[in-house]
Amino acid sequence: MGFKNSVIWLYFSSPRNFYPFAGKLIPWFGWLAAVLMIIGLYIGFFVAPPVLSDQKEYYVIIFIHVPAAWMSMFIYIIMSLYAFIALVWNIKMSEMMATALAPTGAMFTFLALWTGALWGRPSWGAYWVWDARLTSELILLFLYIGFMSLQSAIDDPRRAARASGLLAVVGAINVPIIYFSVRWWNTLHQGFSVQPAQTQQLMDPSIKWGMLILALAFWMYTIAVVLYRVRTIILERERQTTWVQELVSSKS
């Protein structure tokens, strides 16, 4: 079984084999994302209770804020795992996946901040507070920006992928340290604690389901978009090979 698995992994670690495979998967994940999004939004707007204890109607932002924040962190973890695999075992496909994940991760980080700000204004009276989680999220956005800037500053695609991959791994080691430091800093300065304990207990199951389904929808969306982007990257990096040349000339 181990042998068969490793053969499968070897097969898909070749860009030539992965390209058509990704192309077949994209519509599946795309449609799954759309359907889950509709279900999740329906639960969020029509099934879940209109108010959540002390939180008024505006709390429906939770259904995209929390999944976006989850995705921003998951994507960074997955991205640095791919980068680590690429560095240690020198697998090109893994390198390209890390590159393809970054823009979507940065987008979800920005959306988590944006929706957090719009949720914060009615509930704490300010668009921005230096809460530990908001601050960590902001630093995460800086890490994504650093990754993408380094990537675009290097012309040679191989060096770009490897250098930014190393940066992602170093950043991933730092993320828990940063989170811990920011929390420490926050408690020293008697900062805000945004998580109202009783809200957690009173949470209706429909709210949890809505959040989970939308998080799943975001996952499916991410997979579809990232696979699409990685196909573009494969074409660019493999443009000298005959299979890309043939594919391109058959299309034009």
């Binding site: 505006y58 429906v60 932002i61 929706t115 719009l118 978009v225 982007r229 074409l235 660019e236 299309k251």
Partner: peptide
């Protein structure tokens, strides 16, 4: 607050899909 959040999220996700599709076309 509500439509500002949902609106921008929808706009970003749609824009990303369009950009990704366009990017591949121009690469080909």
């Amino acid at each position: 607050y509500v439509w500002g959040s949902y609106g921008l999220t929808a706009a970003f996700m749609i824009a990303e899909v369009i950009l990704v599709i366009r990017g591949k076309k121009s690469m080909v």
